[in-house]
Simulated assay, not measured.
Amino acid sequence: MTTNRPSTAPSARAVDAPTLLTLGVEEEFLLLDPATGESLPVADRVLTALHGRAREQSRQEFRHSMVEMVTPVCTDLTDLREHLVALRRAAADAARAAGARLVAVGATPVHESHRTVPDEPRYHAMSRRFGPVAHDPAVCGCHVHVGLPDRGLAVQVCNHLRPWLPVVQALTANSPLHDGADTGHASWRSMQLERWPSIGPTPYFASVADYDATVAELVDAGIMLDPAMVYWYARPSATYPTVEIRVGDVCPGVDDTVLVAALVRNLVATMVDNVRAGVPAPRLRSCLIAAAHWRAAHEGLDGRLIDLRAGGTRPAWDLVEELLHLVTPALARHGDLSYVLEQLARLRREGTGAARQRRIIARTAGDLGAVLDHLAAETIAG
């Protein structure tokens, strides 16, 4: 696939230093058998084979068939893209040495027979607490961190983000397959994760004290082991001075990831402006937000999404255009506008990861091997 590199990087003239928000990305990947497409439990071998910066920026995940790669903090989309390409290629080389291939796909597409958790006390505790839910087939996400060290502001920003996160979710849909068949959902990962009690839309919080008290109650009730198990779609990170958006499937290609990261950064920047201007966050019913996320996971960008501000459903791309209009001033401020316009045009032509997979299935009369070949190649394309 032809890729477009970021054409406009932030500069001192385009962005005032105080308004330049940093960002970083965590990407989770599956390790699949090149012949069968089944998940392979070789993560330990893959992590051991990584060296230098790639090893430092890798993480063990909840399945033996997964690895996570984490970019450093970036201010520039070009730098972010270069880090993503380098990390994906390093992980792919290590996977190849372990007899697997690295694939950026949101959910286990064929089968996973080895579902025990890695030998870590925390993972064993999660297994004991949540039982079979903790042993579902592997799922892989894309988490975008935007620098925001003020936790009180971060909580308010999360309130403002809630109407827009289903649109971000639809943009990233990349997991239509399960057990070798099309599920009818663009993001099966999203459906699978609904079984966890601490995953889902971020609740509305009046303050950081309200947030902390609620999390403490959930921990006390056994819904979470600890505050690090806050897996809501947007949260003040438990580890970094950031707002973390964790609603999306891992994206198939690097440019898909950079596009989502750019939109998320500038959506956060826009909501920071709104908070500081005293604009109140909309008080939306939790059932409607949950419905909007379900619809986004089912449709991706190929159908209609729920408009949480005006009510009813609208074509998905209409809401993408509204999101773009909303964040355009922040995109211009960060120097990201040209790249985002290029990549949204490409995404409209090519479709989401789910749409691309389905197109190959239709073209090859259901050849899953062709789908996985394409995904593996797209994962490391630069």
Rank of each mutant, 00 (worst) to 15 (best):
Tyr211Cys: 00
Leu375Asp: 04
Phe29Thr: 05
Leu368Ile: 14
Leu165Tyr: 03
Thr364Trp: 09
Leu324Asp: 10
Asn159Cys: 09
Glu244Leu: 11
Gln156Asp: 11
Ser286Met: 14
Ala94Thr: 12
Thr78Gly: 15
Arg13Thr: 13
Leu21Met: 08
Ala43Pro: 08
Arg128Met: 06
His178Ser: 15
Leu225His: 02
Arg59Asp: 08
Pro315Cys: 06
His334Lys: 07
Thr75Gln: 08
Val85Phe: 01
Leu47Lys: 04
Gly253His: 13
Ala228Glu: 15
Pro197Asp: 10
Gly300Trp: 02
Ala355Ile: 10
Thr3Asn: 05
Phe62Ala: 07
Leu30Trp: 03
Cys158Asp: 11
Val243Tyr: 00
Gly180Ala: 12
Phe62Met: 13
Thr239Ala: 14
Leu308Phe: 02
Val247Met: 03
Val70Asn: 14
Thr379Ile: 11
Asp226Lys: 04
Ala355His: 13
Glu61Val: 06
Leu148Thr: 06
Ala377Trp: 07
Asp182Ile: 14
Val219Gly: 03
Thr75Leu: 13
Val258Gln: 01
Val25Ser: 09
Leu331Ile: 02
Glu350Asp: 15
Ala381Val: 11
Ala14Gly: 15
Val258Trp: 08
Val260Leu: 15
Asp336Trp: 03
Thr328Asp: 12
Met191Pro: 12
Ile223Val: 10
Asp76Leu: 01
Arg129Phe: 03
Leu331His: 02
Pro252Ala: 14
Pro72Met: 02
Leu267Cys: 03
Ile245His: 00
Ala14Ile: 13
Pro282Met: 06
Pro18Ala: 10
Val268Gln: 06
Leu225Phe: 09
Thr75Met: 09
Leu80Tyr: 05
Leu324Pro: 02
Ala261Thr: 10
Pro149Glu: 05
Val103Arg: 07
Ala181His: 14
Ala54Asp: 07
Val67Ile: 14
Leu341Trp: 00
Ala209Gly: 05
His160Gln: 06
Tyr339Gln: 07
Thr3Asp: 14
Met191Ala: 08
Glu322Ala: 12
Val155Tyr: 03
Leu305Lys: 02
Thr108Phe: 08
Ser198Met: 07
Glu27Ala: 12
Pro201Gln: 03
Val146Pro: 00
Val110Glu: 11
Leu165Arg: 01
Arg63Ala: 14
Leu288Phe: 12
Ser286Asp: 15
Met224Asn: 04
Ala49Ser: 05
Val168His: 01
Ala173Ile: 00
Met271Trp: 08
His135Asp: 11
Leu284Pro: 05
Ser190Phe: 11
Val25Cys: 11
Glu112Phe: 08
Tyr240Ile: 09
Thr8Asp: 00
Tyr339Met: 10
Pro10His: 05
Asp307Thr: 08
Thr257Lys: 02
Ala291Arg: 14
Asn274Ile: 05
Arg122Tyr: 01
Asp226Asn: 10
Glu217Val: 15
Gly52Asp: 09
Leu301Tyr: 08
Gly353Ser: 13
Arg285Asn: 10
Ala290Pro: 04
Val146His: 00
Thr257His: 01
Ser175Ala: 09
Arg96Cys: 15
Leu308Ala: 02
Gln57Trp: 02
Ala228Phe: 01
Ala12Glu: 10
Val105Asp: 04
Cys287Ser: 15
Arg314Glu: 07
Arg189Ala: 02
Leu372Gln: 12
Ser286Arg: 14
Leu337Asp: 05
Ala92Pro: 02
Pro203Ala: 07
Glu26Leu: 09
Met271Asn: 12
Ala228Pro: 04
Arg81Leu: 12
Pro236Met: 00
Ala310Cys: 15
